[in-house]
């Protein structure tokens, strides 16, 4: 085997070990930490008291979504 072959083999094997290992560790941690225990709770983690579920948080400048929706003809 030439030096480039050895370098390539080391890269491929190293990558498999590194990435396979990292994925296994990440999955193991997620299960142990209870990340997959409550999906309903997880999906709501981006909301908070200031931006709760049910409240739109973006609009064109000068538009109030609630007012627009209340007055929309459709």
């Amino acid at each position: 085997m030439t030096p480039p072959d050895i370098a390539l083999l080391a890269t491929v094997v190293g990558s498999i070990v590194l990435f396979g290992g990292a994925a296994a560790i990440a999955l193991g941690w997620a299960f142990r930490d209870g990340q997959f225990d409550n999906f309903d709770q997880g999906s709501k983690s981006i909301f908070g008291p200031d931006e709760p579920v049910g409240e739109a948080t973006d609009a064109f400048p000068g538009i109030n979504v609630e007012v627009e929706e209340a007055t929309a003809p459709w």
């Binding site: 739109a56 948080t57 609009a59 538009i63 109030n64 979504v65 007012v67 627009e68 007055t71 003809p73």
Partner: peptide
């Protein structure tokens, strides 16, 4: 140049704004 928000840095819905009726 943009309008400074009165509702705080993350609340982007104007609480008291009035608008002409009709679809945007």
């Amino acid at each position: 140049w943009g309008k400074q928000r009165s509702g705080g840095p993350t609340l982007f819905v104007e609480p008291q704004a009035t608008y002409p009726p009709g679809p945007p």
